[in-house]
């Protein structure tokens, strides 16, 4: 079973983040595999290994060296397609989806396209659904588990109340919720093998796309409002009643 996994390389979220003059994120330093993508990679590896055949191919659009892709290859993915092009600087979500869709179409036969529900740096959460629309495929979101059987993908789809059991024809685009599996650590053998795995680097023109402008640009960036001070209650021995009252108001109890 061939599975494509869309992954993003991002600046380390633990480090200081800086913006360019055009309000986009600076991506000059070392890029790492977005942690939220590691769950999709893990699920894809498990599906491939359970099937006993097929390949896991990474699809990524990002500037710079493929250091984050190498991490996913070290985890066990088989190959990668990396779209690197300066003209994509500042691309919005829809343009990103177009690029990924074009890359997916180069990747040969596949059963699933897996993605995270959202990236850790951009947080639009819209790319996978746009990708499915462009490819004309079913889109299943927030998967906590994925099974492929009888030409269909069966997904337990996380909801606030529990989960829905969803099935769709394959190929399909499925997004994976963060934290639903424990991503493996790259083994030392995996690390050694990673650099020998096929990694195709493509420009936008290689994909037959003409993309140099997009509808959405970041006009300004504002700091999140700082949290307002809470209400202070002096404990005169009955403060607990106030807490109970507050929790009841919030319908927590």
């Amino acid at each position: 079973m061939n599975i494509l996994v869309c992954v993003k390389q991002i600046p380390d979220p633990a480090g200081p983040q800086e913006l360019n003059n055009d309000n986009t994120l600076k991506r000059e330093g070392k890029l790492i595999l977005d942690e939220s993508d590691s769950y999709g990679v893990e699920i894809a590896l498990q599906l491939r290994d359970t099937a006993g055949e097929g390949e896991v191919t990474l699809i990524s659009m990002s500037p710079g060296e493929p250091s984050g892709l190498r991490t996913a290859l070290a985890m066990g993915a088989d190959k990668a397609i990396h779209v690197v092009d300066d003209t994509l600087h500042g691309a919005d979500a829809l343009s990103t989806a177009k690029v990924l869709a074009a890359a997916v179409q180069r990747a040969g036969d596949y059963t699933l396209v897996i993605a995270a529900t959202e990236s850790t740096d951009g947080y639009t959460g819209t790319v996978p659904a746009q990708l499915a629309e462009i490819l004309g495929l079913p889109s299943v979101t927030f998967a906590k588990s994925i099974r492929v059987e009888g030409g269909k993908v069966h997904v337990d789809r996380q909801t606030e109340a529990g989960y829905d059991v969803v099935e769709a024809d394959v190929p399909a685009v499925v997004t994976v919720t963060a934290g639903v599996v424990e991503p493996r650590y790259p083994s030392f053998k995996g690390i050694m093998a990673a650099k020998k795995k096929p990694l195709e680097t493509l420009a936008v023109s290689d994909l037959g796309l003409d993309l140099s402008s997009w509808g959405q640009n970041i006009v300004s960036v504002e700091d999140a409002p700082s949290r307002a001070a809470g209400e202070k209650i002096e404990d005169d021995g009955e403060a607990y009643l106030k807490i109970v009252e507050f929790l009841e108001e919030q319908k927590v109890i």
Binding site: I32, S67, R70, T71, A74, Y185, P186, F188, I191, M192, A194, K195
Partner: peptide, 18 residues
């Protein structure tokens, strides 16, 4: 480069593991 890359990936992997 390939050795530097491998060393860097080993360090990053171990750092996360530790």
């Amino acid at each position: 480069d390939h050795i530097a890359d491998e060393l860097a990936m080993f360090r990053q992997t171990l750092r996360e593991f530790v």
